[in-house]
Design a protein around this nucleic acid. Sequence first.
DNA 1: GTTAGCACTCACACACATCAAGTGCTAATT
DNA 2: AATTAGCACTTGATGTGTGTGAGTGCTAAC
Lengths: 355, 355
Amino acid sequence: MDDSRLSPRKKQILKAIVDAHIDHGEPVGSRYLADDAKINCSSATIRNEMAELEQMGYLVQPHTSAGRVPSKLGYKFYVESLVRQYSETKTEIDEINEKLRYKLTEMDEILSEASRLASSFTDYTGIAFKSNSGKVRINKFETVYISPKHFLLVMMFAGDIVKAKPIHLSFSLREEELHRFTEAANIYLVNLTSDEITMPIIVRIEALMGSVGAMVHPTVKMIYETMSELDTADIKLEGVTKLLQYPEYSDVSRVRELLGVLEEKDKLLDVISTHTLSDDDIHVYIGDDDSGEVMSDTSMIFKTINIGGKELSIGVIGPKRMNYSKVIGMINQLATGLDRMFGEDKLLGDGESKF
Amino acid sequence: MDDSRLSPRKKQILKAIVDAHIDHGEPVGSRYLADDAKINCSSATIRNEMAELEQMGYLVQPHTSAGRVPSKLGYKFYVESLVRQYSETKTEIDEINEKLRYKLTEMDEILSEASRLASSFTDYTGIAFKSNSGKVRINKFETVYISPKHFLLVMMFAGDIVKAKPIHLSFSLREEELHRFTEAANIYLVNLTSDEITMPIIVRIEALMGSVGAMVHPTVKMIYETMSELDTADIKLEGVTKLLQYPEYSDVSRVRELLGVLEEKDKLLDVISTHTLSDDDIHVYIGDDDSGEVMSDTSMIFKTINIGGKELSIGVIGPKRMNYSKVIGMINQLATGLDRMFGEDKLLGDGESKF
DNA sequence: GTTAGCACTCACACACATCAAGTGCTAATT
DNA sequence: AATTAGCACTTGATGTGTGTGAGTGCTAAC
């Protein structure tokens, strides 16, 4: 953004307005800025400056006799200056990367935990999601024989991801036959993506299995489903209720609109992917009231990190006037914090006294 | 409940009032009942009857010049007569019992799916939960060697529950050593509940493992965590947003209160366990405005079924004036519906054209 | 036992006056 | 030329009074 158009005092005033608005949630007047915020000039001067800032598009006036509120552009300026300030803390990411890598199997849990933390560190809704970048490939199969009609299918994927699913059959299978299937799977299915599992391949395995060919279909189905699950995007939200404390959401119709979007996770991912201003790896969505966007008066801010080949994003959702300074700091901290969290011994809750 | 106090006409009027209130959400007046509902007497007569019903405690009047609204007792009468009507459909449960049994490993998914269905069949929030009845016991262990620092731990529990978790070590383990651990675990840990895994047992296994004794702690920790997870109660909610469409929740503070309870799942389970009127296996919670209960103006209705030793409850949460008739029918249907759902071939979405 | 009629109650909507916050503009000051 | 004081003006918010309509309870007639 071209900040050069703004004199130092304009910047100072703009920042003060955003700060004040974030604190109190109401339009900011010239009087307040002159008296309580430490701007060293009279309210009249500030009014003049505000008028110019409004003309430049950084501020808007809800109605003639109200104070000013930051516009989308105003927030953008504010946030970008903050991001610049924080962006030094970039080193630790690779560390977590390595540490969390082995937890990838429980990506679900990581997402939940991350969004829970993001929410608990702030007064906003926590969000964590993985995008659907890249198809996963099978490395190797293994099976565990449990009973004639019941075995465990172990799938190992690229990037140290391991998934195990129980398979139930309606007929009996001998251990030797299961072993034969494992070998076949390791020949015909390895190194494929879910899309590449085709009918001819299945038929060939079925042929190999002879009289128990019927076990192939449910098993391959499970393989396919597991791979699809790993491929698809996923979002976890935590602490949605926290938003209700803000006056922005004192109108139920607005709450409904917002929760509606949050509940439809596809839609949310869509909003994220199309409407996000990214600066380094901190992404910011700022809802726009004018252009009738889906989530007006609402902002999202999150950071994307790359773990074991998957992109994982952590952040918060809150009112447009959310405390960006705090949030950006928190998100950066969270990256390192997660590290410690997952590394710590959390068994038994009451410490390890028992063991 | 003692219905004998109510004349047939009183019952008819009471039912009509509940119905009308459920439909329109507003107090019901005598005029409406006389004209639009098919009560064959004049409004004055109905007024007299209503006055008596109010005195008996079945109706309440928000203010002098408003119509009547069913009281908790009124709803109770209404619901009970419905439950009686539906309670014949009791046979199918054993069927689902058997079919879903093999899906138990993914109890999580069953819960999610069930609450999703309950919500989609109605215009209310779906709820599904398992209570923490009974501790799970280990039947057998199995391990799969993946790499020197990485193996898969397979745990089989009573009731055909199988869980597999990957274990990552910071040092190397030989396949033979892993095998030795599996044997030890099958001797010392089988048939225990999570509480019965004690320090002496762990020490003994560590001793057996000799130089690689350090692999015992993280592994047993995972076993303990897995068992705890199976033991603890869990709730899944779906479609919380749907509640916002009802005028009962047009006040944000009320929404906040409700969502607050729903988000704290322990609290919700507590409400469920203490405040529920049960009739057969259909349970009904009716919020009471007077007694300052947690969820005023809100009702829950759910059915409990027993699957593989675990109690699973499915139902909905909605405004007090929810469509009980529809909901009770739906819940009974859902039991059988789930059956078909889980049995169906859902692979590939676009049918099985591909295979 | 039922019904018609009427006086009464009360929430709600509407109009209207008042209030306070905040602006824009002009003229005076530095 | 920039800053400031002062003042008229705008506008949402708040409070008050009144009318309206839905609905009741009661009494008297059927």
